[in-house]
Design a protein around this nucleic acid. Sequence first.
DNA 1: CAGTTTCTGTTAGTCACTAACATCACGGTA
DNA 2: TACCGTGATGTTAGTGACTAACAGAAACTG
Lengths: 209, 209
Amino acid sequence: MSERKPTLRERQRTETRRAIQTHAVRLFTGHGYDAVPVADIAAAAGVSAMTVYRHFPTKEDLVLLDQPTLLIAERVAASSPTHPLVRRVGGALVAAATALTGDDGGEGAANKRFLLDCLRLMVSTPALRARHLDSQYALQQAIIEALGHPTDPEAAFGARAATSACLAVMHTALTRWADDDGRTSLPDLIERGLVASFGQDAVAADRSD
Amino acid sequence: MSERKPTLRERQRTETRRAIQTHAVRLFTGHGYDAVPVADIAAAAGVSAMTVYRHFPTKEDLVLLDQPTLLIAERVAASSPTHPLVRRVGGALVAAATALTGDDGGEGAANKRFLLDCLRLMVSTPALRARHLDSQYALQQAIIEALGHPTDPEAAFGARAATSACLAVMHTALTRWADDDGRTSLPDLIERGLVASFGQDAVAADRSD
DNA sequence: CAGTTTCTGTTAGTCACTAACATCACGGTA
DNA sequence: TACCGTGATGTTAGTGACTAACAGAAACTG
């Protein structure tokens, strides 16, 4: 709504990128991630292999979905410091999942299907699973900073441990969500995972956090 | 103590493997993981590149340490089913860490140094970090089976979530342990991480679990 | 000592990814 | 409208991880 000026070059670039990613996920889903060379994806998208690498630094990035780091960090920073760590972080994860799956992230159901396809690939392909787990490292760092900087190094270690535990729960919930083909509510899954791990007081009674 | 028969071939094979891994970690630590080609490691160890791949399926496996899956799974299976999930799993992790760092895993201090070198590489190299996180997947699976097979799929999901959270805490503790150069007690670090995440009742009062 | 197994080296090849240079269309400008 | 700078793309050549296939040498077996 704010920036109006999608010049032709930008539109073409965006379209090229979309085409590459779409064909990549389609081919990966059909033949398996490892069985599809980048050259095939490029051919399917009607570009050269070099162009693929100009849009996506690695083959793995064709499937990796960018985590909503800012969205989550903001909610963590806005949470009450009096609550337990896992409730502050967990609440933010549930809220972010609600925002992303509730209104479809600003697009239609096709978006959700694409997201589920990516997730399924990520869960079933070791290389992608590993990359995704590691990408949570950046998210973890952002969350810890949003929690505030405890001067006590011992408290900082506790924050890292609790945050990593919450993210592990979210990853488990994402896996289950993909297995269910998105039928179960993702926020509910995360919340149930949090309760199973941290107990009832890890989540707000009315999910108002 | 049980199997006596280290035939010459086996001894040579073991020694070759050890030499390759030792030179690999040394070169990686000195020049960085990405900057050292497998060919250089092979040359340093006095073998061909092909031999390296015969002993280690991938370059990453040169640094990855095999997790004591059996040791942990046994302790989980032996834990009391009446305790909370995170206490059963967390207790097993603390116990395994005690067994491995307490008596040096059956070898001397050189072993601990090597382990710390591997850990530092793992923490600082994205590719290795990712692989290590993913390798916990196998450990997670073993732990879940050791917990017993709940017929309720909902309970199974809870077990997965809690287990993954515990393993994330352990990973955080391992990272901190490497940062401290092994000066802090690893079992203590894990226990402190568990308490920070799951609360006081996640660990046994006298660590007798 | 003969025969089999196992380890190893060599070669050639696939594939992910990078660097360097040429090309061509879009974009603003005179 | 004609012109040129900029950015997107293609092409080529190269590095490095990893695999398959074959050949030779060493070690176990009898």
